[in-house]
Amino acid sequence: MQKTSARLLALLSLLQTRRDWSGEDLAERLDVTPRTVRRDVDRLRELGYPITAFKGPSGGYRLDAGSQLPPLLFDDGQAVALAVALQTAATDTTIGEDATRALSTVRQVMPPRLRHRIDLLRVTAVQPPANDDASPGDTRLLMELSNAIHARVELRFDYDQGRPAAERPRRTQPHHLVTWQGRWYLIAWDLDRDDWRTFRADRVRPRTPTGPRFTPRELPGGDVSAFVTGRFRGTDGTTTDWPCRGEVVLNLPATAVAPFARDGIVEELGPGHCRLTLGSWSWTGLAAAIGRFDTDMEVIGPPQLTTAFARLAERYANAARHS
């Protein structure tokens, strides 16, 4: 039988691999009794891991999100992958400073063998050509706007347009936070003008407190991508009429995707995922362009994009077999 400390790490590793585990399955994998599993779960809870028990034929456990970040456990491959991702993110103008600090924290607790591997690896992420007038956005401001959207509360703010400030702040119902051509925009219903408006996020100066909760309205056309492209069509001298256009949800934050999708529309959905709408001259080319983000994703549509992903997967599998 493993020592208690090693067994706790093994138990934590199993709980992180899938959502639900029965008590019997955990006991069998760890070669202990169900009673020992219960005691070890209690020990992990004392260390801050939010493990909940659920009812069933034999009962079980799952590792949930908590109110604070407990110690994390990574295997060697995960630790290296995390360091590579943080090195890449460190070049981003929006989250670069936070990514650099996170990389320093991770490196400090790595065992020497992994730290040496990371020190030998240097990742340089080449940013696309920037629009000189584009603003990367302030992380705290983006989070404040995002919180108002998800809480569905009215937002009051001063809007800096290079002219003397209006006497009254803008009163809005915020609906979407998106990027277009490297710049962040807030899509909101303007209560005073009784119409939809698109605001540059870097010009928004929120006031506190926020207003009352509201019931979201239906966006014209019901599609964020169509709304944004309709508002900005031709304003920068480029065309958005790609023959192939698809939509996916990526398991990455919008701030990590936006710098590398300047020709697309990135909609923030939550702290760890976003919706990307992108165009290309072919469905296969579009699938390949989206695949470079190297993360799990859900294809929203259209069916031609799903078919293109399947076709690429088959080609890659054939190439791997003959290599």
Rank of each mutant, 00 (worst) to 15 (best):
M1Y: 10
Q2V: 09
T4I: 10
S5W: 00
L14G: 04
Q16L: 12
T17P: 03
T17C: 10
T17M: 12
R18C: 12
R18I: 09
W21L: 04
S22R: 12
R35F: 09
R38G: 10
D40Y: 03
V41F: 02
D42S: 14
R43M: 11
R43L: 15
L44M: 05
E46I: 11
G48Y: 10
G48I: 09
I51P: 08
A53L: 09
A53D: 09
F54M: 05
F54G: 10
P57Q: 10
S58G: 14
S58N: 08
R62C: 15
L63C: 11
D64K: 08
S67Q: 12
Q68I: 06
P71Y: 08
P71D: 10
D76T: 13
A81N: 12
A83V: 01
T93L: 13
L103E: 02
S104V: 05
T105I: 04
V106W: 02
Q108F: 11
V109D: 12
P112M: 05
P112W: 07
I118Q: 07
D119W: 00
L120A: 14
N131G: 11
G137E: 06
G137W: 00
D138E: 15
R140F: 11
R140A: 15
R140L: 15
L145D: 01
I149K: 02
P164T: 08
A165Q: 14
A165H: 11
A166V: 02
R170M: 07
P174V: 08
V178C: 05
V178Y: 01
T179R: 02
Y185F: 15
D190T: 09
R193F: 06
D194C: 05
D195C: 08
D195R: 14
R197H: 13
F199W: 11
P209R: 04
P209Y: 04
G211M: 03
G211D: 05
F214W: 03
F214L: 06
T215M: 08
E218N: 09
G221I: 03
V224N: 01
V224Q: 01
S225C: 11
A226I: 08
A226R: 13
V228K: 00
T229A: 05
T229D: 10
G230C: 07
F232C: 06
R233E: 14
R233Q: 13
G237A: 07
T239Q: 08
T240P: 00
P243H: 07
P243N: 06
R245E: 09
V249A: 05
A254L: 02
V257D: 03
D263C: 03
D263V: 02
G264N: 04
E267P: 02
E267F: 01
E268K: 08
G270Y: 06
G272H: 12
H273D: 10
C274E: 01
R275W: 04
W281R: 13
S282P: 09
T284W: 00
I290N: 00
F293R: 00
T295Y: 01
T295D: 02
M297R: 13
V299F: 03
P302D: 02
Q304I: 01
L305V: 08
A313D: 15
E314R: 15
H322W: 05
